[in-house]
Design a protein around this nucleic acid. Structure first.
Lengths: 113, 113
DNA sequence: AAAGATACATAAGTTTTCGAGGTATCAAAT
DNA sequence: ATTTGATACCTCGAAAACTTATGTATCTTT
C-alpha cells in the first residue's frame, strides 16, 4: 500500500468487509482494484497482505467463497456470511469512531454521514 | 489502548509528535494522560508501547530530552528537535490525508480545519 | 500500613504486514 | 511467433509494532 504504510495497519480487515458489504461479491484481485480506484491509487492492497487475510476471515466464518471459471482461469469470489455482515457493521462503526477520536487529537472535524 | 486495538497501530508516533508540537514539552506519563483526557479515555497509550517509541524517536534525533527531579523522583521531559518539528508536520498531514482517504472508502466526509 | 497514583523501564511473544517469489492464463503489441 | 503486461491465484521468511507481564521506586491518600 502506498501510504507511509504503517498507518494502514489494522484497517485491512475493515476495508475488505466494507467493500464486500457495499458490492456484495468480489474476488481478491478485484478488491485490490476497487480499493485503488476508490482512493485515487492511495491505498494499494498488496497480495501478500490480502490473501492471508481473506483466508483468515473465511476460516473465522465471516466470509464464504464461490469459485468460478473464466475460461481456464480460476476466480474465487468472496462474500459476507451472516455473522460476517454483523462483524462488518460493527467493525465499520468502530473504524468511524476511531477516526473521530483521532480527529480529536489532530484538530480535525470529522462528520459521519 | 482501548479500541479494538489493531486500529491504533501505526498512529502512535504521530500522536506523540502532535501532542509535543501542541504542548511543547511533556514527559512520558503526561503523554499518556493527555491522550486519555483528550479522547475521553478512548485512547490509552500503554507504557510498553510508549517508552520504546520515545526512545526510538530520540535515537533518530526527532526528540530531545531534559531530566528534572521532583523530590527524588525522575521526570524525563521530551520535546521536538528541529528535525522533529519538520517530521511532525509531515507525519501529521500524512495522517490527515490517510483519514480522508479511508473516509472515501467508508462514505465519511472529513474536513480538515 | 496499605493502596493507588505517579514515573521510569525492559523483554518475550503475538500479530500484522511487507517483499519476494512461484504458477498459470489471456490479450495486445512487436 | 513471441514477448510483455495485465489478470489471478498462492506461500513464506523477515521485519515492525504493539501487548502483556514484570520490575523498581517514590509520593499521596486512606
Amino acid at each position: 500500500m502506498s501510504f507511509s504504510t504503517e498507518l494502514i495497519k489494522g484497517t485491512l480487515r475493515t476495508i475488505i468487509l466494507k467493500l464486500l458489504s457495499d458490492h456484495g461479491k468480489l474476488y481478491g484481485y478485484e478488491l485490490t482494484q476497487k480499493a485503488k480506484e476508490m482512493t485515487g491509487g492511495k491505498i494499494q492492497i498488496t497480495e501478500g497482505a490480502l490473501y492471508p487475510t481473506l483466508h483468515a476471515l473465511e476460516r473465522e466464518g465471516l466470509l464464504v467463497t464461490e469459485v468460478e471459471y473464466i475460461g481456464k482461469r480460476v476466480r474465487k469470489y468472496y462474500y459476507l456470511s451472516e455473522s460476517g455482515s454483523a462483524a462488518s457493521s460493527q467493525k465499520i462503526s468502530e473504524l468511524q469512531d476511531f477516526i473521530n477520536t483521532i480527529g480529536l487529537l489532530l484538530d480535525l472535524k470529522t462528520f459521519t454521514v
